[in-house]
Design a protein around this nucleic acid. Sequence first.
DNA 1: GACAGTCTTCACGACTTCTTGACGGCGCTG
DNA 2: CAGCGCCGTCAAGAAGTCGTGAAGACTGTC
Lengths: 227, 227
Amino acid sequence: MTRVLVVDDEPQIRRALSTNLRARGYDVELAESGEEALQLVVDRHPDVVVLDLGLPGVDGLEVVRSLRTWSRVPIVVLSVREAERDKVAALDAGADDYVTKPFGMSELLARLRAAVRRSAPAVDEPVVDTADFCVDLAAKQVRRHTPDGDVEVHLTPTEWSLLELLARRRGRLVSQADLLLEVWGPANERSSDHLRVHMAAIRRKLEPDPSRPRWLVTEPGMGYRFV
Amino acid sequence: MTRVLVVDDEPQIRRALSTNLRARGYDVELAESGEEALQLVVDRHPDVVVLDLGLPGVDGLEVVRSLRTWSRVPIVVLSVREAERDKVAALDAGADDYVTKPFGMSELLARLRAAVRRSAPAVDEPVVDTADFCVDLAAKQVRRHTPDGDVEVHLTPTEWSLLELLARRRGRLVSQADLLLEVWGPANERSSDHLRVHMAAIRRKLEPDPSRPRWLVTEPGMGYRFV
DNA sequence: GACAGTCTTCACGACTTCTTGACGGCGCTG
DNA sequence: CAGCGCCGTCAAGAAGTCGTGAAGACTGTC
């Protein structure tokens, strides 16, 4: 669920935004001041901040600048000021968008979606690490731990596909049908001969004792499991 | 230098934008139609697109959608339409910002800066250095280390695109599909012949022993990797 | 129109990867 | 204990991929 931090000192705006956003499935945090906003960004890690420029106390612009010293969270600025130099100042301070009040709710929501969408796709692919080797799913790379440090292990495309699938579902049993389907595609009613050959190749490269697999376990008659 | 693609059918707007942007040090490309715009994104890889919605021929919204099927280049939409539903449609189609005409030039420039800043990869290091050569991503320049000091190496546009993509994702495997998409655009179901030829050219210019690549490694059947 | 630079296309040999079939080990069942 | 199914291993040939050089197409400049 997307978390939005709404920063505004006017209660009715907070209420209006909060209601609208919650109705659309957002998780909403509210702040009334710049200080509170900065604290909540630290505590709750919102996915996007809606920030009124006209705050009492710390100026909204200062909030933007403070945030930008350490965070890249998208900031959509709200303001009654229409002057170009205000917009320029806010945007150059690090804001992502600038909406002047009064604003249409649907436009604001669309701009929020755009801001979140842009920053979202930072999908961090995990690195699966074992005592013997380490599978980096993002880099498509496998390193084997040795006394002299890590050594890169070269896998062929088929071997990588198999290992990747097992690593993504580590702990779970993956049936032979699933493996054949994902690696060789739907058309093939291939035999599981392939599976055996390629699994053996992976084990030879990664397992300390390939004939006694410790990580890539066979479940006879069912499939394979990465533990 | 930041490259901006301006898409508008009105000559005076093109001229105004082009003049203002060039005066501020932008590299400006101009397009009068949606088709031309799509082609120029493929050919010139702009860092940001300014797109008028009211184009003859292909609708501006369609241009946004087409681009978003394969590219993440920031798009700032210009439009005379002020209705919220137009803004929502454009933003949800994948635009990054929406500015209504008539617009203030300084505001547009600030929004462009914001769009470019956001998309700027979180490059911790805009210069990638190896023992043999040095890739300056900001300056789009490659220098080769020699006993007599550094020598600038000239790369063709295609070669640079390839090297840049690999350098930005250094350490990670980049699939042939990704490389073809980013360098040659979406329309082309090109063969990987191109890839092989241009990679060979880059290696000839940068690798100490081009037939035994040390930095630009081939992962057979999968892609290439900059280590 | 010649020219230089670039991109595309193609064919070939070298190399890597995949498939296929055979063989033996293991555990289970009748 | 023999038969059966399933699995791991091996090796050889088939299939595919990569690097390379060279020729032609295309572009913009002089």
